[in-house]
Simulated assay, not measured.
Amino acid sequence: MPTTPSRARKWIKSGLAIGERNKIGVFYVQLLREPSGTKTQKIVVGTDRGKAFTGIAFQSKLATIVLFHACLPGFYKSKKTRKDRQSVTGKMEKRAELRRTRRGQRINRKVAFKLRNHREKRFNNRRQNKLPPSVKANREMELKILIEMSKIIPVSEVRDESCGGNSKRNGRRYISCNNWSRMV
């Protein structure tokens, strides 16, 4: 369970615990022996999605444990060029541009239009029911933060703030811990 920084320093100094960092850089303390108690607090995770940023909070009744202000990968802004090559949308635009130039090089323009070598489309990729790559990258990043933090904090419930929804719950959609563990 969450502890105070001074108590964690004492544990590390006395050899009762070691300090570790997880994949997203959060420092935590790992006990080297069995804890004195096994009671856990009810910890709720709240997420608030935005277009370029996402807020994620891990909170118990007593205190806010950790807050994340995640800069989403689909929206890194570059001031150098109009087309942003660092963002997901910029990369997809650049990929399409390169593909168009490659396809244009294969065409023999000296031959009549009907006799030119145009490649048929290999499969029907014109469906419009898939998730855009930028949105998918953003949601995967949020999920990665939730998974990594749930390894060190016992999460009991995940609450996702979304626009619209049930008016009885003030427009918030709740995901119970059981459903969330199936998603992971």
Rank of each mutant, 00 (worst) to 15 (best):
T3F: 06
T4Y: 13
T4V: 01
R7I: 14
K10S: 11
L16G: 07
A17K: 00
I18Y: 07
E20M: 13
R21A: 06
N22P: 07
K23V: 12
K23Y: 08
I24E: 08
I24G: 04
I24P: 04
R33F: 15
P35G: 03
S36F: 02
S36Q: 09
S36I: 06
K39V: 10
Q41A: 13
Q41T: 05
V44S: 05
V45R: 00
G46I: 09
D48H: 09
F53S: 01
F53P: 00
I56P: 01
A57L: 07
A63P: 00
A63K: 15
I65Y: 11
I65D: 07
F75T: 14
T89G: 04
K91W: 02
E97I: 03
L98N: 09
T101I: 04
R102Y: 07
R106Q: 14
I107Y: 04
I107F: 01
I107Q: 06
N108F: 02
K110M: 07
F113M: 13
K114A: 13
K114T: 13
H118N: 02
E120H: 13
F123A: 10
N124F: 10
N124W: 13
R127V: 11
Q128M: 13
L131I: 15
V135S: 08
R139C: 08
L143E: 02
S150K: 02
I153L: 12
D160V: 15
S162T: 12
C163N: 10
G164C: 06
G164W: 11
G165Y: 09
Y174K: 00
Y174T: 10
